[in-house]
Every structure is written in structure tokens, then in C-alpha cells.
Design a binder for these strands. Structure first.
Lengths: 216, 216, 216, 216
DNA sequence: AATGAATGAGCATTCATTCAT
DNA sequence: CATGAATGAATGCTCATTCAT
């Protein structure tokens, strides 16, 4: 009616937000398009003005939310200069995002993987970029001599992501999340990886610094 | 009819094997019970004499194959005595199992996770036991002084499993598996974790700071 | 329960008969599969055990009923020996079939032609055979010198069928069928065509032969 | 905006022409109102300013184009004075119209009949007038003693129209139209009907002209 | 008059599961 | 034990039509 009526853009966002909630709540499969429409306050058909179909909606959620996460990750990393500190920031940021957006986390950690297409056909470039950020940090660490040159950044990034991801899934699925401290988990895991990738102490004898990782 | 007719037990196994193949080939959702029945050479209804329903079939596959994997894992570990060597054997065995049973790997790494119930309701005790084996190795390593006491075995086992798992998924999904050397990946990942968990080299001068990472 | 339970074949026929009635009553498009199922006394899904889909059901009705009509036509023609008498029998039989099976007539004359596929893609071989019967009667008449040789049997059969068909459509669509005597119509139309195709009466005085083709 | 903007009338015609093309191309059912709107260069809603709905558009096409055809038919007949010659002109004109407007022919011969309403409810007065023209020619021929009095003009007109129509449909649906000579078909069919309706030779004896139809 | 974003009714079809034989 | 014909619930999507601008 008035110019304050939800704009076209708002409507699209309302659909996305509604979809995240409904997918998280009932699961992707059980979520009915009409559920999402009702929650978004639009007609069923309206969803198809903005999205190709139900699965597209899921993939768009992935794309757009991932984009935001990537931006936030970049910002978070920009505040640190030391490669190892940035790796810590990476893990911290990863878990914080999950903790702060539980519904979205459910969609990312659980529902998205139930999309046959997502797993078998889709090429999640955004996810790869997210991983590449870690790979680049490893390379940077190697250039500065803080990380062993033998470490394969590519393998490391999958291993690291897998570790974070598995813990994230467990947290998302955990019935009692309070027993689960993601902050501490982040610290432990990142410590484990940093030590694992760190250059060994320069010499056995008078190593004033037995912990090169931290001192680098 | 004749004595050569497949026995009851054989029939159950044939159904399971057929299901693994069909699930791997078409995906859990797209797999029709009748597809499995045909491949197993039984009638549709027969499947319901042995399994509660389609999802139960998937979960039974998980249970039984996991049991076998666990046994094989135990045997493999029994051949090593050093905790660190056993951890290496753990990773090696994990990847080998996957490499040797591609269809089953597809089911475990991809299809199983599309079961809403598996993720949201089911308690995969067998998986936990599989993980516990690793946790126990960590504890053992800690007792023998090879692994830092601060390492949380529980968190470590999820991180380690997550790392192995993510790499396994990538291998399963990879179009060109030949470019992917799981053996090498196992070595790298386990090396990374072992270094990460290892006790720091005994510095000649007592380090005042047992937790350098946190204090850095 | 007992062996008198409707057999598999009966069930298929019941579905076909129900479909004819429902199609005739509500029209092909408006007819719901569930309507047909209810009228046939089976579950919706059962229909798909016997027919590929709703359109297939329509086309199967065409094929099977057309087959029956063809058989009956052949029988009816077999009772006459004179080609011209057989042509009369053809038209009589055509209209009688329509009069005796009004629902089927509605499907044939109206609903079937609303199937885009029937008109644009389908090759109604059965219809062609039905037409060929007429074409053959024309050829036979030509051989016996009763029908002019210049008559193109192919064109004649389409024209004849078109004439019968149009009148049939008008009868089917007519609100007041009693005002419409198909028997008489058959006689008139066939008379018109027979005269049109007939060899001219042998003129007593040797005509210079205005129709050389016919004299052959 | 400018004075060259298509006028209201032009717009209506553009919609009609676009509809004929789209209906002929995709079929009535598959044709989307938005397809027609795009081709006509107007917004979807605009169509509803000129036509009640999609079916109305189809019926208006019928009405208006039929009107034109009728006018052209009258003009064509006016050029002949002999009733039999005019009947020939009728058939010739019918087929020529079809040959010259293939898209419209498709709509008339195929798509229009897929409109449930056109067949079941609509009273195609224009078509009746088109047929009446033929009926009148028959009556005229009867008055002049060229056509047998027993011929029912009403039945004859349906039979004649049915014959022309069926051949038209076959031509429209024919993949290879070049193999189909409508001009010749017209001649044959009209010859068949004229002979069929013609008065028999006055007497067996000195009928110098046993074939009044042909000789007229 | 013209627009085009929004609406929402409507239904064919699949396939896991059952159960009479 | 085994069969397999029969069941029937359950829903994503299209697109003609409307109406606020």
C-alpha cells in the first residue's frame, strides 16, 4: 500500500530466512514449500518468482550465507598479522559463526548434506574458497618459516576443515550443548594443528626456545 | 526347492550386499526397494521379513559392516605394540578399508548421512566404539609419556576422525581417484596429528612453561 | 478372497470401462485419476500397474476399442458380398457403433482429440486400418467395374470418413439426439458417395466416351 | 509516448496475431499467456483489457478470422453464377484459405478443438453460417434442377464439410505437405459430391449428356 | 490504459509397505 | 518362509488471472 511495504528485496530475504528456519526445524525433506511461504508471509507461487525450486532455495542459502561468512572471516583475519595467530582466528571464527547462527548451522552441517545434488553434482566453490583461505595461511606460515615445508597445504586444509566440521556437527547434534564448549574446542584443535605443522625446534642442544610455533 | 537353494542366512546377506550396491549406485533416496529385491533375487516383500524397512536396512548395513571394520581394525592394531605406531596403523587401516570397498565407502561417506534418522535420532554406538579405539590409543600414548597430557582424547578423536573422514569423502566424491593417493594422505595426516599431540622434545633445561601455546 | 474375486484381467477392464465413463462425463482434462480409480473400485496407484499414465490410458482405450470395432466391422462386411452393399454396411456399422456406445463415442469423437499427443505425435495405425478397409472396398468396386477408376481410393476414404465423422460429432454433441436419425443419415451419405463414385450408367448409344479412364 | 505508438486497435490485433502464432507453434494448452504477451509486445495484464481470458482469445480468433473467411468466400462465390460452379469454388476457396494461412489453419483444425468449451458449450454460429452457404448452394442447385431433390441440404453440408475438414486436418498434420496437393484434392472431392448429388440422366434413351455435372 | 508482481488452486504420480495366498 | 499385487498418502510446481500502482 505505502512505500514502506516490504520491498522486493526484503521479500526475497524473508523467504530465505523463513527457509533457513523451516529447514532447520523440520529438515529439508519434510519442509514443505507452503510452510516456508506461510512463515515468510507470501504465497507459495511467490517463492518460485525468486527461486527455481525447493532445492535451488537450499543451494542459494548456501551460496549467500557462505559469501557472508567468507566476508566476515576475511575481516576477522585482517585484524591479525601473524600467520599462526590468523589460523587461530580462523578456527575461532568458524566456531563462533556456528554458535551464533544455530539454525543456519543446522542447515549447513546437516540438511545441506542431505541434498543429493549438493553432494554428488554441485561444485561448492564458495566452500573451496573458504578452505583456500586456510591453505593460504599455511603457505604464508611456510614462507615465514613457521610451518614445515613438507606440510601439504591442500591436504592440511581438508584435514583441518574436517576436524572443525566434525566437531561442529557433534555440537549441532548434541542434545545438551552446554556441555560442549566450542571456544575451548577451537583452542585445542588449533593448538594440535599448529604444533603438528610447526617447524621442529632448531637443534636438540641449547634450544632456548623449545616451542618454535609460539615464538615464530 | 532343492538343497542348493540359498539358505536363509545367505538370503539375508544377499539382500545386504545388493542394498550396498544399489545405495552406492543410485543413492539411498533414489534406490527402490524393488531394485534391491531384484538384484538380490528375492521378492520385494521378502526384504521385510529380514528388515523392518528401507531405513532399517541402511542402518543394519552400518551396524554389521561397522562391526567387521572394527574387528579388522583391532586385528590390524594388534600387530603393533607402540602406541604411536598403532595410531599410524589406525589411519592406514581406515583409508585402506575405504579404498578396498568403494561401494560401501560411498554408502558410509555419503548415503548414510542422507538418512535423517541416522543424523538426528540414531545413536551410532558402533561409530563411537570405532572412535574410542583412537581415544584409547591417545590415552595409552599419554600414559607412556609419548603424548602430551593436556590433549583431550575425546576432542582429539573427533578431530582426527573428522580429518580422516573429510579426506575420505573427497576421495569418494573425486571423479579422478587415481590423482588421489590415500596411502600418502594417511601418512601426512597421521604425522600431523602425532606431532601435534606429541610431547615436546625434552628440553635440557626445564621449561617453566608447560603450555606455551596458550601463553604465547 | 475366493476364486471369484475379480481377476487381474477383469480389473484392467474395469479400469478401462471406468475411464471411458469418466472421460465421457467430465472430459479428459477434468477427469481425475482418482475419479477413475473410485469408479473402478481400485486404488489410485493400481491404475499405474496397468497403464503408464493418464494419457496412456486414453490411448489404450483408443487402441483396444478400435481393435474391437475393426473386428466387428470385418464381421459385418463379411455378411455382404457386393462391394457396394459392403460400403453401405460400412457406414451403417459406423453409425450403429456410435449409437450403441455413446460414452465411447464421446471419447472417440471429442476427448481423444483433445490429447495434444494424439493429434500431433501419435500415429493412429488402428484408425488407418479402419480407413483402409473402406479404401479396399473402393478398389474392389473399381475392379468389378462398379466404381469409376479415376476415384482415388485414398482421398475417397478420407472424404468418406470425414463425412461420417463430422455427422458423428454433431450427433454426439447434439443436445437433442432424438431429432437426429443416424440410420437415415447413414443411408443418405452412403447413397451420396456411391452415386459420386459409381460408374455412369451405360448410355444406350455408345458415348464417345467422355470418361476414358472408367472404360478401362 | 509518441504519436507513433501503436494505437489501441493495432494493439488488439497484435495480440490476436501473436496468439495465432503461439497457439499454432506450441499448441493451445502449452501456450502461455505470457508468451503471447511477449510476442505482442505488451504486458500480460494488457491482454485482459481486450479479452476475457485465454479461451476467449481463442474464440475471438475463431469469430474474427471466420468472419473474414466468410467475406472472402462470398466474394469468391460472387464471381460464379452457376450453382455447381459455385460449389466448386467453395471447395477451392476452402483449401486455398488453409494453404495460405498455415498457422491459422493449425489453430482452426487442431487447437480450437482442444478447447473443451468450444466443443461442448460454444455455439459456433459463424461456422454454421459458413456451412449454410453450402446448404444454400445445394438448395439453389435443387431449384434449378441440377441437384436431386432428395438430397438433404443440411446433411449434405455436414458431409461435405466433414470431407473437406478431414482432408484439411491431414494436410495440416502432414509432415511432408509437398506430397499433398490440396488443389487436386479439392477437385476430386467436389467432383465426387457433385456427381453424388446430381440429378440422374433424365432418361435412359437419348441422353446426349449422361453426365450433367461434368458437362455443366 | 498499461503494467507485471503476486497470487493460490489444483492434481498426477511414486513407491515403501502390507498381507492374502 | 516367500511372494508380488495392491495400496494410498503426500506435495512440488505451474500459470491464468488479478489489481495496486
Amino acid at each position: 500500500m505505502t512505500s514502506t511495504e516490504p520491498s522486493r528485496l526484503e521479500k526475497r530475504d524473508r523467504i530465505i530466512d523463513a527457509a533457513v528456519e523451516v529447514f532447520a526445524d523440520k529438515g529439508y525433506r519434510a519442509a514443505r514449500v507452503s510452510d516456508i511461504a506461510r512463515k515468510a508471509g507470501v504465497a507459495d507461487g511467490t517463492i518460485y518468482l525468486y527461486f527455481k525450486n525447493k532445492e535451488d532455495l537450499l543451494l542459494v542459502i548456501f551460496e549467500e550465507k557462505m559469501e557472508t561468512l567468507l566476508d566476515q572471516l576475511q575481516s576477522a583475519l585482517a585484524m591479525e598479522s601473524d600467520p599462526l595467530a590468523r589460523i587461530r582466528a580462523y578456527a575461532r571464527h568458524h566456531f563462533r559463526s556456528i554458535e551464533e547462527h544455530p539454525a543456519l548451522a543446522q542447515v549447513f552441517q546437516v540438511e545441506l548434506r542431505q541434498s543429493h545434488r549438493f553432494l554428488r553434482e554441485y561444485r561448492p566453490e564458495k566452500l573451496w574458497r573458504y578452505l583456500d583461505v586456510f591453505g593460504d595461511l599455511v603457505r604464508e606460515g611456510q614462507e615465514r618459516g613457521a610451518i614445515r615445508a613438507e606440510v601439504d597445504p591442500f591436504l592440511a586444509q581438508w584435514a583441518f576443515f574436517g576436524a572443525l566440521d566434525e566437531i561442529s556437527i557433534q555440537w549441532v547434534l548434541a542434545r545438551k550443548r552446554e556441555r560442549f564448549n566450542l571456544e575451548q574446542a577451537a583452542l585445542q584443535v588449533v593448538d594440535l594443528f599448529l604444533r603438528g605443522m610447526a617447524c621442529p625446534p632448531p637443534s636438540p642442544h641449547p634450544p632456548q626456545n623449545p616451542h618454535p610455533t609460539a615464538s615464530a
